[in-house]
Design a protein around this nucleic acid. Structure first.
Lengths: 256, 256
DNA sequence: TCAAAAGTGTTCTGTTTACACCCATGG
DNA sequence: CCATGGGTGTAAACAGAACACTTTTGA
């Protein structure tokens, strides 16, 4: 047991001083090497929205064990990058997309979560606009969009990750203007409402929804209309990020 | 190392299969061993409340570099435990306390965050009632309570951890009954209010505060009074966890 | 008897919800 | 000319904020 060695050393180095068990930074420079190292993975929950419902990307596992089962995309953090970079790299490798909204979710660390080897995985979730981006990832063949409600059973603790990601997304959607990450640059009010309805998984009132956004005053109504959607056509809107940022500076906070 | 045997077996079992770069679970069984491993630390933000203000525990670093600087308590996760267990162990080693409310906060992973060695640290925060518990940790001499507002500059990214923990605590306090973790079993309304005021860092209205809690209906007013606090004495209350749990089952959610 | 802190309700204001009809257009 | 989906306002209910006086008792 390495901690025994540790105590012995400290007793010699600083006689009379009681071993400092709790501050790893004290131990760090002399004893980091005796500590266990583990593999650090990142797994990505990729959310997308396609005019109807919320979806996520899953890949089919092609090896034993769990061959043929669905899983999140993931990869290992390298020593010369941080977790955010690792997550962005994993996402880009699959989708070819960079500059995507990503957020760290939670670290999963159960001892037996991965039967292959002791691995701690930090889950991230990403928001992408399905319509505006073409996937170019090397693993495109094995990746597939699933409606959230029809997602299959996933390997390891990936279902728990997805559940937590959905909960986080719901909370974020109510308090931050991240919904726009899931929509094209220009969108109609009905699209925006459909998005929120699918995130929150409940019907919203059309008039109240529009009034709410009007009062938030961070959308620009364009002069264009989307004529494909109805005979009358529907106004297109754009999120005014500059205005939003200005208002945040002044103490504004987005609350749906 | 049992995983090596394991890899060998799998490689033979599925010859000719190309490594799948983006799904680490595919790589896992054949390529885990080529992946970087890192040290996984946990750092604990320990919050306490002592009738007046919110405090946190810091320890003084006794080794170079950064000797004499203040830091959070921390330690390394061992291979046979998960992060929650590591955090609980670190906390218990310092304070002698177990069965304490703890919650995972965020994983900090900047490449150069710890000059000693590549270390990823998962921050946890803990809530303890200062008054009711005696510290018995081996490191008691070097540990000290600091009022939140007077916390010193900390090593590495620990100040960022504290900031995030405070923000999380604020959010939690508004939406979950975790304040009671910071109070004795029995407490007065004024204590509870002082706690919330120090968490939220703003004055609250006495009557509105009490009315709010009355309407939540999860406190039991005892027949005892705390006579030390005023000539008139102040009613003591207890959090009714059973009632709260029952109400949650029925769809209730705590919103302050 | 007075100083110190506790306890207690009501009004006002702003926010959220519920709700129904007209409009523009393509077929 | 009509079917389809888009756009619009108001009233009622509710929740949050503001606010002041009485009670108890130890010194």
């Amino acid at each position: 047991m390495q901690s025994c060695k540790f105590f012995g050393y400290l007793a010699r180095a600083a006689p009379g001083v009681r071993p400092q068990l709790t501050n790893h930074y004290n131990m760090a420079l002399t004893y980091y090497k005796t500590e266990d190292q583990v593999l650090l993975a990142v797994d990505c929950i990729i959310f997308g929205f396609d005019e109807e419902e919320l979806k996520l990307v899953l890949v089919k596992r092609s090896m034993e064990p769990e061959r043929g089962k669905w899983s999140l995309i993931g990869g290992f953090m390298k020593k010369d990058e941080d977790l955010d970079q690792a997550a962005a790299r994993v996402l880009e490798t699959l989708t070819g997309l960079s500059d995507i909204y990503m957020e760290q979710l939670y670290a999963y660390s159960k001892v037996d979560r991965d039967p292959g080897q002791r691995t701690v995985s930090v889950a991230y979730f990403a928001l992408i606009d399905v319509a505006s981006h073409q996937f170019e990832g090397v693993q495109l063949e094995t990746a597939q969009w699933f409606p959230l409600s029809q997602a299959p059973h996933l390997i390891f603790d990936h279902n728990a990750m997805v559940e937590k990601a959905v909960a986080r997304l719901r909370r974020r959607a109510m308090t931050m203007p991240i919904g726009f990450e899931l929509l094209p640059e220009k969108f109609t009010m009905r699209q925006l409402q459909a998005l929120y309805e699918s995130i929150l998984d409940k019907k919203l009132d059309k008039r109240n929804f529009i009034n709410k956004f009007k009062s938030l005053d961070v959308l620009i109504r364009l002069d264009e209309k989307d004529m494909t959607v109805a005979r009358k056509g529907a106004y297109l809107y754009r999120f005014d990020k500059e205005k939003y940022d200005r208002k945040v500076e002044e103490g504004f906070s987005f609350k749906l």
